[in-house]
């Protein structure tokens, strides 16, 4: 659930993002677009991990499906963007419904492994189905609307879609359904006892998470003008999971914060050393060991200590 502080953070974040084009330089625009795409991807995963407490290790499957579908509709079928993108998101949601229907029958470890298996299946199909996906080389060179060649317009396009998506996710997290999700996370047995259809609610969460991952994937396909099987590989699922964990999985804005930190660190550290993975591994290790609630959890506990000291001084 989004607290007041988090809501303010979100608003400020989007105001800050809206100011980026004013800098008049290219690179901040590029970075902001990448951050928004991966931030949305991480937030979509958090619907599963943070809200209903289902650990999916195959979320990249929907990221890839959204991207491939959008690329295919745009390029091979020549659909206009206002048809192709909703269609791609719809297709991703249908895939999430089918895959989710099977996955929500299992819980915990088995759920994690089944999602992993499905995502590897999606990867294998993307790798083999050359006629549609371009195979191992990927779907290269998608037909994008003209305005996307302009970095500033592409930025605003991404900004609008991500802002609306995050707004919808915010509404979800503050709705009755969002509260039901959290009840399931905290105690599925009790939720069941109180008359919640746990399996159906988890399926709904799965489809919502998949659809938003599909939006992120579609945006990425426009951004890099292609889609590649690597986007469905298990390491991609691992990366987005790290983002969620780093930011803080039980908070609304945590994932977007985690995505920003990981992405910015990766971009800059890998310019100085080829050993970025060991840095990421160490960060992850420290978070797991010492700050399992992520950055948001750290901020919260620092905040609590500060306000306690404030009270003592007063």
């Amino acid at each position: 659930m989004a607290t007041r502080g988090q809501t303010i953070f979100l608003i400020l974040l989007f105001v800050a993002l809206a100011l980026v084009p004013l800098a008049g330089e290219r690179y901040p625009l590029e970075l902001a677009v990448q951050l928004m795409i991966f931030g949305l991807f991480a937030m979509s995963l958090n619907v599963l991990i943070g809200h209903v407490g289902s650990i999916s290790f195959g979320h990249a499957a929907f990221f890839a499906i959204g991207g491939y579908a959008c690329a295919y509709f745009q390029t091979r079928l020549g659909w206009p963007i206002f048809v192709s993108m909703p269609a791609a998101i719809g297709l991703t949601a249908v895939c999430a419904l089918i895959i989710g229907y099977f996955c929500v029958r299992l819980t915990e470890l088995y759920f994690a492994i089944l999602t992993l298996a499905f995502s590897m299946l999606v990867w294998a199909v993307a790798f083999k189905w050359t006629e549609v996906t371009g195979g191992g080389d990927g779907f290269v060179g998608i037909t994008a609307p003209d305005f996307m060649s302009n970095p500033v317009l592409f930025f605003w396009f991404t900004f609008a879609i991500v802002a609306v998506s995050v707004g919808l996710l915010w509404l979800l997290s503050n709705s009755t359904m969002g509260k039901t999700f959290i009840a399931i996370r905290e105690n599925p047995t009790r939720a069941d006892f109180l008359g919640v259809n746990v399996r159906r609610m988890r399926l709904i969460a799965f489809v919502i998470a998949g659809a938003f991952a599909g939006i992120a994937g579609a945006l990425l396909s426009f951004y890099v003008r292609g889609m590649f099987p690597e986007s469905a590989f298990w390491t991609q699922s691992g990366q987005v999971m790290i983002m969620v964990l780093l930011g803080g999985m039980h908070s609304f804005v945590g994932p977007i914060l985690g995505a920003v930190v990981i992405y910015v660190l990766e971009t800059f550290i890998s310019q100085y050393t080829q050993y970025w993975p060991i840095v990421l591994g160490t960060i992850l290790l420290l978070i797991v060991m010492f700050a399992p609630d992520g950055l948001i959890g750290m901020f919260r506990s620092i905040g609590r200590r500060m306000s306690m000291r404030g009270r003592r001084n007063a």
Partner: peptide
């Protein structure tokens, strides 16, 4: 609730 302070601090940090 002092949460909003951290909201602002975080926003400024990202910017």
């Amino acid at each position: 609730m002092k949460n909003w302070k951290f909201g602002i601090a975080g926003g400024v940090a990202v910017l």
